[in-house]
Simulated assay, not measured.
Amino acid sequence: MYIITGNKGFVGQNLSKYLKEKKKITIGVSRKPDNFEVAYSKFNLLLLNQSKGVIHLAGKAHDLKKTSEDSEYFEVNTELTKTLFDQFLKSECEVFIYMSSVKAAADVVDGILIEDVTPNPVTVYGKSKLAAENYILSKEIPQGKRVYILRPCMIHGPNNKGNLNLLYSFVSKGIPYPFGKYENKRSFVSVENLCFVINELIDNTNIESGVYNVADNESLSTKDLVKIMGEVTNKPAKILKTPKFLVNTLAKLGDILPLPINSERLQKLTENYVVSNQKIKNQIEKELPLSAEKGIEKTIASF
């Protein structure tokens, strides 16, 4: 049996289904404001001793609207993780997988992000994830146990638009993509590839405990994404090479006025954020099920 915290979330639902197809029994705990701490209190030694592994997905996601208190991130992402991990260490449970984020390592990537970079998170979300990582890494792992910290990059999959939504709105409405002057590359991970990695970590006792980035093999430019969306929706993408000074001026106006683009959105659409998955691939010694392009195609086809 495997415990999945946050089983009602996007990744949790997909992982529960994936593991069921692999003939694994799972028990889920959902994070809701009124019952999360109560649910965590149920993680007694009896339950953990009956389980082979814990996949800890539950957490407070990055609040793009910036309405959350900083303390909420540390209460959920850090303190509750520490509580669950302490219980795991005391139990007979064998595997602990913590879903962190690349944002625990860096908000800006110069070159390619690898696991041994010195972490420097800027957001409170990233800092709360890193604090949980540091706590886990500070503990001695008993013999017979395995502990994995996963840092996925931007996760996507069928029925989850996420940060692809703004791009999709451009393409689906036939609006030209105006940022053709910008050249960038960024990494994504399909939820199918993420579930594959988690299942391999569960099954393969030879994989060393540690921190692992999770990403698709290939990185894509935003223009690549726009073209893929156009092909999937049968609406050929229109890419305009608007002068950068004009785009930057509009973005600054968008910081004040309710425009479709502002400085933050422009950065997200045009920044470089390439993540290496070589460390986890070397350990798994298998190829990921989906290419980056095929994964994006499956996601877009579900919109």
Results as ranks from 00 to 15, higher is better:
4 I>R: 13
5 T>W: 13
9 G>V: 08
12 G>R: 02
21 E>D: 10
24 K>I: 08
25 I>L: 15
27 I>G: 03
29 V>A: 11
31 R>I: 11
34 D>I: 05
35 N>L: 05
43 F>Q: 03
44 N>A: 07
46 L>S: 12
50 Q>G: 14
50 Q>M: 11
51 S>Y: 01
55 I>D: 01
55 I>E: 03
58 A>D: 04
65 K>A: 02
65 K>Q: 05
66 K>P: 07
78 T>N: 11
80 L>S: 14
89 L>E: 10
90 K>V: 04
94 E>P: 12
107 D>H: 13
112 I>G: 06
112 I>R: 10
112 I>S: 11
125 Y>I: 06
132 A>N: 06
134 N>W: 05
140 E>I: 10
141 I>L: 07
141 I>S: 03
147 V>C: 07
149 I>P: 04
153 C>V: 12
159 N>A: 07
160 N>W: 13
163 N>L: 05
167 L>W: 09
170 F>P: 13
172 S>F: 09
172 S>Y: 12
174 G>I: 15
176 P>G: 09
180 G>M: 14
181 K>V: 15
191 V>T: 03
192 E>L: 15
193 N>M: 00
194 L>V: 06
196 F>P: 12
198 I>R: 01
198 I>G: 00
200 E>S: 09
203 D>P: 04
206 N>C: 12
209 S>L: 00
212 Y>M: 05
215 A>T: 01
216 D>I: 09
217 N>Y: 10
217 N>D: 15
218 E>Q: 15
220 L>N: 11
226 V>W: 09
229 M>R: 00
243 P>K: 14
248 N>L: 15
248 N>E: 15
252 K>P: 01
255 D>C: 02
283 Q>H: 03
290 L>V: 02
291 S>R: 07
293 E>Q: 11
301 A>S: 14
302 S>I: 02
